[in-house]
């Protein structure tokens, strides 16, 4: 029983990285970024390739983030410089990334048990002693999720972070400050996709494999998690956005786990996600109407 909770919690913590990424693109920039479905497996492909070639598991993370950043940069440049619509810019990069991911990894690539991952580092054994593997996975993912939450919180307080937030809320203000709204958008996409690729990298190490289709539906999954989190904490202004994303991610994975445990037909799972998603949005919109407010979800 406890195992089931730990496993769902671990998944939620790992996917929190994806949710931070979507928090930036969707919530802060108001940019529906489909690059995610390509940058997630990109991070995984890079990691699988490096780690099977003997690179240290920790070192693969910054490389994966860099790869994700480049993907975000591509979408940003396509959108800002070529004036391609946001949704299309993301689709173009995502489509290109599908081939690139396959070229990087060859084909679907397993990481053999003999190869150490983030979760089986010898240093962890020394530190945690006899903690079980699922315990280690929980601790490592907890540390990573919190670390990046605090880093993001810090970043949002810097000048660049403030500008990023303004670019989504009030582009006029950004322009009046003599700053380029385009540059802020590109920066946001770079940051967002590097987090998404990082998530792909950690997932790849956790499940010890890269598969070319692992990115499918990640954008919607992340979006659903972020919106769950934001809805739950809607009335609490003191709760940070990153906290909302983190909790949303965990709640989402709990829901999926409950559905699997209940023996739900997996082919219906996506439909249920969509209905859940719609219900949350509908409740939010209903409440706003009752209060007469006009804020968007």
């Amino acid at each position: 029983m406890l195992d089931v909770l730990i496993s769902a919690l671990t998944q939620g913590l790992i996917y929190a990285l994806l949710c931070y990424g979507l928090l930036i693109s969707y919530k802060i920039l108001d940019f529906p970024d489909l690059t995610v479905d390509g940058s997630f497996p990109l991070g995984a492909a890079v990691t699988a390739l490096l780690i099977t070639n003997g690179v240290h598991p920790l070192l693969t993370l910054p490389v994966a983030m860099l790869a994700g950043a480049l993907a975000g940069l591509a979408t940003g440049l396509i959108h800002v410089c070529l004036k391609v619509r946001d949704l299309l810019a993301g689709i173009i990069t995502m489509t290109a990334l599908f081939s690139i991911d396959l070229k990087i990894a060859g084909s679907n690539l397993p990481i053999p048990r003999g190869v150490d991952t983030l979760f089986t580092l010898p240093a962890l054994d020394a530190l945690l002693g006899s903690v079980s593997l699922s315990g280690k996975k929980l601790i490592v993912s907890f540390v990573i999720a919190l670390l990046f939450k605090f880093l993001l919180d810090l970043y949002f307080r810097t000048g660049s972070g403030m500008l990023l937030r303004a670019a989504g809320d009030n582009p006029v203000l950004v322009t009046s400050l003599a700053k380029s709204e385009g540059k802020a958008k590109i920066l946001g996409l770079v940051l967002s996709n590097s987090l998404v690729a990082l998530c792909g990298a950690v997932v790849c190490q956790e499940q010890r494999s890269f598969s070319s289709t692992m990115g499918t539906g990640q954008m919607v999954l992340g979006l659903a998690s972020v919106i769950i989190g934001l809805t739950v904490f809607k009335k609490l202004s003191f709760v940070k956005l990153t906290t909302a994303a983190l909790v949303g991610s965990i709640l989402y994975k709990f829901c999926i786990q409950a559905a699997i445990l209940a023996g739900l037909d997996p082919s219906l799972l996506k439909l249920i996600t969509a209905v859940l998603f719609l219900a949350i949005l509908a409740v939010g919109s209903f409440e706003r109407r009752r209060k007469g407010g006009g804020a968007r979800a």
Partner: peptide, 24 residues
């Protein structure tokens, strides 16, 4: 027997497997 079908979805596939393990 607990039969699950991943519907060719890699994320679901991983979660089904970890659920089996959690349920011993």
């Amino acid at each position: 027997v607990d039969v699950q079908n991943a519907g060719a979805d890699d994320n679901l596939n991983a979660q089904i497997a970890s659920t089996f393990a959690s349920k011993n």
